[in-house]
Write a protein that binds this DNA or RNA. Structure first.
Lengths: 341, 341
DNA sequence: ATGAAAGCGCTAACAC
DNA sequence: GTGTTAGCGCTTTCAT
């Protein structure tokens, strides 16, 4: 495997051509202060003439930094949340990094082999920090990285007392707001289609549903809640079907994700129920840019851009300080009303 | 910015603990031959005890390789082709790299800033090679990388005489086959909805359409061809609308992408034409895993997995040899019949 | 089979 | 301001 072509000019050659010392060239390429303007220009001319490009391995070795961060996606992230969610986060992260010299590296970790390889890559010092899209309780990666002392920021948390730095949406609050809105608009028989409860995000959203009922003094009927095995449309469809079978009087549903909501809508249509007139549906909105106004649904929208920006801010801060200050950020969600109620 | 935590054990410390020289430790971690088994085990024990992880910057500097390759996506790739296309390629690439020590890095290049940063990253020796998803004629990146002597493989080509190594589907052949199939099934008034002709891929597909007509001795009517400004559904819809306006007798359409085809189908439905009974539609299938059997459409399918694997094979080969052998691979497409004709 | 030693190209600390 | 120097931690000859 070849790399920087043999014969690539080095800093030393630049220095020789410009008639200055290596230190001066180093200062120029790092725009450090304390270099006379004429000298700087002379060096820049030499750099241009030679087509000099700094060797980043050498810089890394001497400077103890990689000027790169990795954003890790597990296979399940990719599938579960779908593209739009992912796209918005990545764009926000990229934007937040624009004014820095930090290169963003996306990596896919699907198998144990890939995880091992990535951990070696990260621990080996090729990145200064790691952003994790992962949210699975069983994922060992966050702890591996944290134990290795690598600045790490997660999107979402694995449990209520997550130790690794994270940024999350206010899932419980958002769900509570949604259900409260349904109650205020006069709905009473409100079902819930939950995601898999071994995921903390699903747990939070279901908790929000329950809290809203409780706060309004509405008795919680366990048979109004269906736990899905995943967040897919198919699961939403099935959940909705069983829900209307058990509860013909149902007049509203809170779905823990927009894909679940989409499935629910379909099942309602198939059952001849009109939405939102007969049954109002509110979904938690993980994918919003994808489905413009498509199901005329009131949704709980997450501030995806803000989440990405917050992740970068936290990561950069952790990269500065040596004594890592663990921190958590929870961002508010927004209830976007269309014509549900 | 911190990196490998201070206090990280070095190869030297491992050597000391194991009571051997640095060279021996190096041989062990690279599992080079010529180390006695007992020695090897002693070293491995020391590595485990210390929790040693090689410093990749140092390895890179001394070894002249990065053990990493980048897959670059431009903003337009990402949007234009959509997720499924992208996903399949990336998965295939990842799989092809599984048995190597090479880490796959996805990078997003949207702006000039990001392009500059990436070029410095790549030329700086942080990757041994680059895979480009880009297909835009105006994209300067391929030439920048090639000029820098970096092994580079493109997906698709920018023109008929592309100099950079690429892997491409047989776009002209696929289109020709599709239109021939329509002709053979008795259709005669066959329209074409083309993509933007400043993209070589669109040019090829349209050429295939024309060649099929010519081979069958059917006169080419220019008013049966609509050039879209992009590959979106909206464009497909508009193109189809204008097509049936001009040619009520139309009984088949070749669309240069599946999104264009989807738009065309919609417009046909809105116009009260039945598909495929009244009008047969064949699309070139860029996204197939996404739309399982959704529009009951015969499509020209690209071997996405093979494309990804071929890209990796070519890249690895270029990384081996010093005298770069420019090469191009064009893979056959497949006509997947559903009930179009 | 294994140890010793010479770099790889840069940054940063220190002298001038 | 600018030149000099000492590493950063590894791979790779070259001895032994």
């Amino acid at each position: 495997m070849g790399r920087q072509r043999p014969g690539t000019p080095t800093l030393e050659e630049v220095a020789a051509l410009a008639g200055v010392g290596r230190g001066t060239v180093s200062r120029v390429i790092n725009n450090a202060p304390g270099v006379r303007d004429s000298t700087r220009r002379a060096v820049q001319r030499a750099i241009a003439e030679l087509g000099y490009v700094p060797n980043l391995a050498a810089r890394s070795l001497a400077g103890h930094r990689a000027d790169a961060v990795a954003l890790v996606m597990t296979e399940t992230d990719w599938r579960m949340f779908g593209e739009p969610f992912f796209t918005e986060i990545v764009h926000a992260v990229g934007d937040a990094l624009t004014d820095t010299p930090v290169q963003l590296l996306l990596t896919l970790v699907r198998t144990d082999t890939e995880r091992r390889r990535f951990v070696e890559y990260a621990r080996g010092g090729r990145v200064d920090g790691v952003l994790l899209m992962s949210v699975h309780a069983a994922d060992p990666l966050p702890d591996m990285l944290a134990k290795a002392g690598l600045p790490t920021v997660m999107l979402g948390r694995r449990s209520g007392d997550e130790s690794v730095t994270y940024v999350d949406a206010d899932n419980a609050g958002g769900a509570r707001g949604a259900v409260t809105y349904l109650l205020e608009s006069g709905r009473r028989a409100i079902g819930a289609i939950s995601g898999p409860l071994d995921m903390y995000v699903a747990e939070c959203r279901l908790r929000g549903y329950r809290e809203a009922l409780e706060l309004s003094g509405v008795a919680a009927d366990p048979s109004l809640v269906v736990e899905g095995d995943d967040f897919t449309e198919e699961t939403g469809r099935r959940a909705m079907t069983s829900l209307i079978g058990r509860h013909p009087e149902l007049d509203a549903v809170f779905a823990a994700s927009d894909t679940l909501a989409a499935g629910a809508l379909e099942a309602l249509g198939a059952a001849g129920r009109r939405v939102p007139r007969d049954v109002a549906v509110i979904g938690f909105d993980d994918l919003h840019p994808a489905r413009p106004t498509d199901p005329p649904l009131t949704t709980v929208r997450q501030p995806l851009g803000e989440i990405g920006r917050a992740m970068v801010r936290l990561l950069l801060e952790e990269m500065e300080e040596s004594p890592v200050a663990w921190r958590h950020v929870i961002l508010r969600t927004e209830l976007v009303r269309r014509d549900t109620a």
